[in-house]
C-alpha cells in the first residue's frame, strides 16, 4: 500500500521519490513485469543503436526491389518503394520513443501545475480549473486528438501536441487529490508561517510529494499514448510519409496487404509488443500500489 510506503520524514520532500526504488524491486519479482521491462529496454536500445542495427538507410528507395518478401537481404522484406522494413522499424522506434517522451514532458508539468494549484487554493479557482479539466476529460482521447489534429494540420508535431492536450486531465485530477491531502499537513503550515510564498510552497513542498504518483500515472498512460499515436498515423493524421512511424507504415502497407503481408504484419507486431509491455508494467505497478488509487481516470 502506498500510504505505508510514504516516508515519515515529510520535511524532506525529495525522500518521497524513495518508494520508486522499492516499486522497481517489486516489479522485478513478477515475470510479466520483467517481460514488459525487457521489451522497453529493447526499444530504448533499438532507438539508441538504430544506425548500427539497421541494415539499410530508412529512406533509401530501390525501385527495382519493391515489395520483396522477407529474405536474407531484407529481413522483414521491402515496401512499395523498395525501402527495407526492418531498418524502418528500427528507426521508427526513435519516433515512438520521442512521442512518449515528449507527451510525458508536456503532460507532467501541465497536469501538475493545474492539479496542485487547484488543490492548493481550492474554492473558485479549483472549481474553474476542474471544470476545464472536465471538458477535456469528457472525451475519449483519440476523438479529441483527431479533432485537434484536424484543426492544427496533420503532422507528427501536431499529433504529439494533440495527444498531450488530451492526456493531461487525469494527471491534473490525481495531483489535485494528492495536494488536498497534503495542503494542511504540518510541514506546509510551517512553511506558510515562515512566510514562504504560495508559489514557493507549491513548488518546494507540494509538487515533490505528488511526483511519485504522477509519474506512475504517466507510465500507465504510455500504452494509450502509443495506440493513439499509431491510430492517428493510420488515419493519415499523425506522422506523414516518408517518416517510418509504425501506424503510418501500416496505413500505406494496407494498400498492398493482400499480396505483401509483411508490410502490415511487422509494424503491427511492433506496436502490439510495445503497448503490451507498457500495460504489463502498468499492471505490475497497480499491484504494487493501491488498485483503487490508480484505476481512477
Amino acid at each position: 500500500m502506498m500510504t505505508d510506503d510514504l516516508p515519515k520524514a515529510r520535511s524532506v520532500p525529495f525522500a518521497a521519490l524513495a518508494p520508486l526504488g522499492r516499486i522497481l524491486r517489486f516489479l522485478m519479482r513478477q515475470p510479466t513485469s520483467v517481460f514488459g521491462l525487457a521489451v522497453i529496454a529493447l526499444l530504448v536500445l533499438a532507438a539508441i543503436a538504430a544506425p548500427l542495427l539497421a541494415t539499410h538507410a530508412p529512406y533509401a528507395q530501390d525501385l527495382s526491389n519493391t515489395l520483396a518478401p522477407p529474405s536474407a537481404q531484407n529481413w522483414f522484406g521491402t515496401d512499395e518503394l523498395g525501402r527495407d522494413i526492418w531498418s524502418r522499424l528500427v528507426w521508427g522506434s526513435r519516433i515512438t520513443l520521442s512521442i512518449i517522451a515528449l507527451v510525458t514532458i508536456v503532460v507532467g508539468p501541465i497536469g501538475l501545475a493545474v492539479g496542485t494549484v487547484a488543490g492548493y487554493y481550492g474554492g473558485r479557482i479549483d472549481t474553474v480549473m476542474m471544470r476545464i479539466t472536465d471538458i477535456f476529460l469528457s472525451f475519449p482521447s483519440l476523438i479529441l486528438s483527431l479533432a485537434f489534429v484536424a484543426a492544427l494540420g496533420p503532422n507528427l508535431r501536431n499529433a504529439i501536441i494533440a495527444i498531450a492536450l488530451t492526456s493531461w486531465p487525469p494527471v491534473a485530477r490525481l495531483a489535485r487529490a494528492e495536494t488536498m491531502t497534503f495542503r494542511n499537513e504540518d510541514y506546509v503550515s510551517a512553511a506558510r508561517l515562515q512566510g514562504a510564498s504560495d508559489l514557493r510552497i507549491i513548488c518546494k513542498s507540494i509538487v515533490p510529494m505528488c511526483l511519485p504518483s504522477v509519474m506512475i500515472r504517466l507510465t500507465l498512460n504510455m500504452a494509450t499514448v502509443i495506440l493513439t499515436a499509431a491510430g492517428l498515423g493510420f488515419l493519415g493524421l499523425g506522422a506523414q510519409p516518408p517518416l517510418p512511424e509504425w501506424g503510418a507504415m501500416i496505413a500505406t502497407g494496407r494498400r498492398y496487404m493482400i499480396d505483401s503481408w509483411w508490410l502490415v504484419t511487422f509494424p503491427g507486431v511492433a506496436i502490439l509488443c510495445v503497448s503490451l509491455a507498457f500495460n504489463l508494467i502498468g499492471d505490475g505497478l497497480r499491484d504494487a500500489l493501491d488498485p483503487k488509487q490508480m484505476n481512477r481516470r
Binding site: T32, A223, L227, A230, G231, F234, G247, I250, R254, M257, V264, T265, P267, G268, I271, L272, S275, L276, F278, N279, L280, D283
Partner: peptide, 19 residues
C-alpha cells in the same frame, strides 16, 4: 486472464481488424 485481457487492451485495433 490477466495476459489475455491485457492483450485485448494493447492491440492496435485497426491492425487486428485488417489481419
Amino acid at each position: 486472464i490477466r495476459i489475455f485481457s491485457l492483450m485485448g487492451h494493447s492491440m492496435p485495433i485497426f491492425w487486428t481488424g485488417m489481419i
